[in-house]
Write a protein that binds this DNA or RNA. Sequence first.
DNA 1: TTATCTGGTTACTGCGAGGTAACCACAAAT
DNA 2: ATTTGTGGTTACCTCGCAGTAACCAGATAA
Lengths: 120, 120
Amino acid sequence: MRDERFCASNCPFTRAIGTIGNKWKPIIINVISTRTVRFGQLDSIIPLISRKVLTEQLKELEEDGLLERLAYKELPPRVEYKLSEKGLAFLPILESIKEWNCKYEVALTPKAHDRVTYAQ
Amino acid sequence: MRDERFCASNCPFTRAIGTIGNKWKPIIINVISTRTVRFGQLDSIIPLISRKVLTEQLKELEEDGLLERLAYKELPPRVEYKLSEKGLAFLPILESIKEWNCKYEVALTPKAHDRVTYAQ
DNA sequence: TTATCTGGTTACTGCGAGGTAACCACAAAT
DNA sequence: ATTTGTGGTTACCTCGCAGTAACCAGATAA
């Protein structure tokens, strides 16, 4: 899940990609953002992710110091996640990605086949 | 390789992550940077990637408009890759990631076991 | 008594990402 | 005649990511 060869690289950029360079972590960080979010909320907000993978990703993010896990000893249990200073410092990067995408993402041009069909 | 469910999302951020949110693409973009690089150079510069995967990633990056492929009809063949405007616009984001990592990546603290060993 | 709620964990399983190795064209060099 | 250089493509196979389903505690509600 986390690529050990990347994390063991002597290139800091490669290590960074080894840490946050997968599809779920930027999504999770973006969802948490500046809030405090419970596990169940993340599970329902993020489409398509399974509880198992969500648990794994959260654990890795915590290990890498991007977020903090607050477990309350209640029943039923309550666990809250919030970004650490490091995680919060990553948010502007996600904003840049959003801006970059909105500026450069081309509207999907219909395929030639479809265009001909409609033109007739 | 590219997650179709991400790319089909109606959330632009999710689509962006579906496009560049994997481990190889940021590395490739960072290596090409402002240069014009040949296939063989990428193959030798980037450690651990196979030619097959490199080809696939380059093709996807081209399809997504991040880079341009220049094939010269020579023998032996020569193919050069360079970033498009969209790809170049992504470089500052990679720089931000480098800065973010250097600022917040904690030096791996030796485990308690090792520390005790050395202390003795 | 039984269901519900929460945040997981575990075992089982399948699919596909990705690695390896062989192969291609064709010119120039040896 | 054979090797080398270049940028791939293809078939084959394996490993592991990730999905599913079952299970857990234990208090509260119905």
